[in-house]
Amino acid sequence: MSEKENNPVTEQNPPLKKESEPLLSKRRKKFISDPLVDDNPITLQVLGICSALAVTSQLEPTFVMAVAVIFVIVFSNLITSLLRNMIPTRIRIITQLAIIATLVILVDQVLRAYFFDVSKLLSVFVGLIITNCIVMGRLEAFAMGNKPWDSVLDGLGSGLGYSWVILAVAFFRELLGSGSLFGFKVWEAIGLGGMPNNGLMVTSVGAFIVLGLIIWVQRSRTGYVEH
């Protein structure tokens, strides 16, 4: 829509050659920046909560989960966008699911082959990326109606928006619950070896609390109100 406003095509002055948009134009940068804060999939749309709660007790599996989700959302957006004019409308949801499921199974198989310990920790939650509403939502709402490059950027934006939130949750949960970051004992390193661990942070209750606080801080800053 904004494309038309920027390049008004008038009868008197028909453009001979349509100027191509820069790869990272202002409009396209918004695809990445919007989901980071203003339209964050977790804190504003409150999607993908299940995995955000389940895998965030330590940073390492959370990081792998974030990479997996970014990979799946970017490539499923790209593939869906490339196929968008071929996919029959009546079976579009099944087609989207097949694309996501294929990518997720690939990720799962690779993890099992090369990162066995992490895949044991993530267990079923890698498979559950298939049902992650963030991925499905982007395919249906964006990739079905937009060009491939735009879709890749949109997927990257949503993936990063998801990632920073779960990493932030995991940071506090691992620090307060286990006293470490990426398995590195932080309190002992700075000479506070006696720092007690908060058992609540290791359970999913801790994730609810941290996530709630992050959403609170963010919404009080952006002024977003639920209607």
Partner: peptide, 15 residues
């Protein structure tokens, strides 16, 4: 694109 034949062919190729 909406015909049954197309949909079935698409589904088979995808599978």
């Amino acid at each position: 694109q909406q015909s049954n034949g197309y949909i079935i062919t698409f589904a088979i190729i995808m599978t």
